[in-house]
C-alpha cells in the first residue's frame, strides 16, 4: 500500500465578490497516494484550476484541513510552504508560461537556482533533462522560436528538473494539436510509471483516460469519482 501524499479534509475556498461570498471549492475531501495519476474533470468554472492552485499552494484554502506528506499546510507560514512546494511540486501550465527572456536551457535551470543547487550539478541535471526530451539542439533558443508542443516539453522539463513528487498540470494540452497532445500525455504516463504523482485538470475524456483515477467536479464540489 502506497503512502498518502496529501489529504484534503473538508477543504473550502471562498472569495468575496462585492458583497457576495462566492464559494469556489466546497468541502472537498480527497486523499492522494503516491504514484497516483488523477484527472480532474468538469465544466469551466467548476473549480478544477482553483483546486490545483490550492493543492500547489499558490493559492490557499480558506477553510478545512490540508496535509501534505504529513505536514499541516493550512497552518504553515509562507516561507515554509514555499520550501515545501519548491521541494516536492512541479507545475505545468496550459499556456506553458516560459520566461520569454530566457533560453530553453535557462528556463529549465531556473528552479534549480531557487533550490540553491551548485553550478556544476545544475549543468548535469539540465543536460540530462534536455537529452531525455530530445531537445538538446534547442537549448539556446528562446521560447518564441519554439512550437507550442516544444514549449510545453520545456515546461514539463522545467517542472521535472527539481525531481518533484507531485506534478500539477492545468490543461497541459489545451493549446496543442492532437498529435502534440498525444505525445505529452504519453510522456505523463511514462513519468507516472516512474513514480511521479500527477494531478491534471482537463476537459478531454481522452486525456483523462490516461489517469488512474478521475474526479468530477461541479460548482466546487466533488460529484463523482
Amino acid at each position: 500500500m502506497a503512502n498518502t501524499l496529501l489529504s484534503l479534509n473538508e477543504a473550502t475556498r471562498t472569495v468575496n465578490s462585492g458583497n457576495n461570498k462566492v464559494t469556489l471549492l466546497d468541502n472537498i475531501n480527497l486523499q492522494v497516494k503516491e504514484g497516483e495519476f488523477i484527472s480532474l474533470m468538469g465544466p469551466s468554472g467548476s473549480g478544477k484550476s482553483t483546486l490545483l492552485n490550492c493543492i500547489g499552494m499558490l493559492d490557499g484554502f480558506t477553510g478545512g484541513g490540508y496535509t501534505f506528506l504529513g505536514e499541516p499546510v493550512h497552518s504553515m507560514k509562507e516561507k515554509n510552504r514555499s520550501k515545501l512546494y519548491k521541494e516536492y511540486i512541479g507545475f505545468v501550465f496550459q499556456a506553458y508560461h516560459l520566461i520569454d527572456e530566457l533560453t530553453v536551457w535557462e528556463n529549465i535551470e531556473t528552479p534549480l537556482l531557487y533550490k540553491n543547487v551548485k553550478s556544476s550539478e545544475r549543468k548535469g541535471l539540465v543536460a540530462d533533462m534536455l537529452d531525455r526530451f530530445n531537445i538538446v539542439g534547442k537549448k539556446d533558443l528562446f521560447p518564441v522560436q519554439l512550437s507550442g508542443g516544444q514549449q510545453q516539453l520545456v515546461g514539463i522539463a522545467r517542472a521535472l528538473i527539481g525531481k518533484p513528487k507531485l506534478i500539477l498540470a492545468d490543461e497541459p494540452t489545451g493549446n496543442l494539436n492532437s498529435k502534440q497532445s498525444t505525445e505529452i500525455m504519453e510522456l505523463f504516463s511514462q513519468l507516472n510509471k516512474e513514480g511521479v504523482t500527477i494531478i491534471q485538470a482537463t476537459h478531454s475524456e481522452r486525456n483523462a483516460s490516461y489517469g488512474s483515477r478521475i474526479i468530477n467536479l461541479l460548482d466546487g464540489k466533488i460529484v463523482s469519482e
Binding site: G56, L58, E78, K79, S82, Y85, K86, G90, F91, F93, H97, L98, I99, D100, E101, T110, P111, Y114, K115, R158, A159, G162
Partner: peptide
C-alpha cells in the same frame, strides 16, 4: 507580471 507569476510558481520567494 507573468514572469513574476512563473517564478513564484516554480519556487521563488518574494524576497528573492
Amino acid at each position: 507580471a507573468t514572469e513574476v507569476g512563473i517564478r513564484k510558481s516554480i519556487g521563488s520567494q518574494r524576497g528573492q
